[in-house]
């Protein structure tokens, strides 16, 4: 059985039998893989405690074609992102991105761009203590791009005009400026402010994402836009559990007016 070595981010863990666990990782070399770690729930010398969700590890496992779950050999902890874990808002943000990758990728589909984006984003969340939502949106834009449905943020998706933008077309992934288009199916209201923020995030380096200031109302709109856009492209995604609480965590409970 060939031994594979790769770097990976732990996306999820689940208990298996008395003391084992099954990890799902997104790896640089082989995409998403599931690994059975026998005895992995015991705190022993062999499994000292780095096999946890969000951790970046150097992994070695035995690969056998046709098997859904591979067998673990060993690992070295590369980055535990301890600062993220000490902050509830950043933990929720990181978990939401990890869940996005978990639910939108298929097994053993290599995507180095997506892996690098995830590592870079977790690194940014680990050092930046403000506006985690902006880091999240920047990451989601990159995820859309690397999964093949990147947003078109240059000009109006219908007439190539420069705006002002009033809607977002789920099918083309672009903003539109014509009022008439809002009556079409698959077009949702989205202001020029939303467009401006996403346009800035698309071009800025990851460390500059936190410069984005936004009102809670606009923030909620952007969250809603991403949710609908992901669901449009991946209809089987009927839930993103970790996304649900985010608007409340970021901006508090929504006040009706």
């Amino acid at each position: 059985m060939p031994l594979r070595k790769t770097e990976g981010i732990v996306l999820s863990t689940r208990a298996f039998s008395e003391s084992s666990k099954i990890l799902t990782l997104f790896t640089r070399e082989y995409g998403k893989v599931a690994i059975l770690v026998k005895g992995g729930r015991k705190g022993t010398k062999k499994f000292p405690g780095g096999l946890e969700t969000l951790n970046c590890v150097d992994l070695q496992y035995y690969h056998k074609g046709g098997r859904e779950i591979q067998n673990f050999k060993s690992f070295d902890l590369v980055e535990p992102y301890l600062t993220i874990r000490g902050d509830l808002v950043r933990t929720y943000t990181a978990l939401s991105l990890v869940e996005t990758v978990l639910r939108t990728t298929i097994a053993e589909d290599k995507n180095e761009q997506l892996f690098d984006n995830l590592v870079m984003t977790l690194g940014a969340l680990d050092v930046q203590d403000q506006r985690p939502w902006a880091i999240r949106w920047k990451c989601l834009l990159e995820i859309c791009g690397s999964l093949g449905f990147g947003l078109q943020l240059m000009d109006c998706a219908n007439c190539s005009g420069a705006g002002p933008m009033i809607g977002f077309d789920l099918a083309s992934g672009g903003f539109i400026c014509e009022r008439e288009a809002l009556k079409q199916n698959g077009v949702i209201a989205a202001s020029g402010e939303v467009w401006g923020i996403l346009r800035y995030l698309e071009k800025c380096p990851p460390e500059s994402a936190v410069r984005v200031a936004t009102q809670p109302r606009t923030g909620r709109k952007i969250e809603q836009l991403f949710l609908q856009y992901f669901r449009y492209h991946i209809p089987s995604l009927n839930h993103f559990e970790s996304w649900k609480k985010l608007p409340e965590i970021y901006w508090g409970e929504e006040k009706e007016n």
């Binding site: 705190g43 010398k45 000292p48 405690g49 780095g50 951790n55 902890l77 535990p80 301890l82």
Partner: peptide, 17 residues
């Protein structure tokens, strides 16, 4: 670090904590 174990085998996260 668990009682009876050795630092050599502890990972970075455990030692930091």
């Amino acid at each position: 670090v668990p009682v009876g174990s050795e630092l050599e085998f502890a990972d970075e996260a455990t030692l930091t904590r």
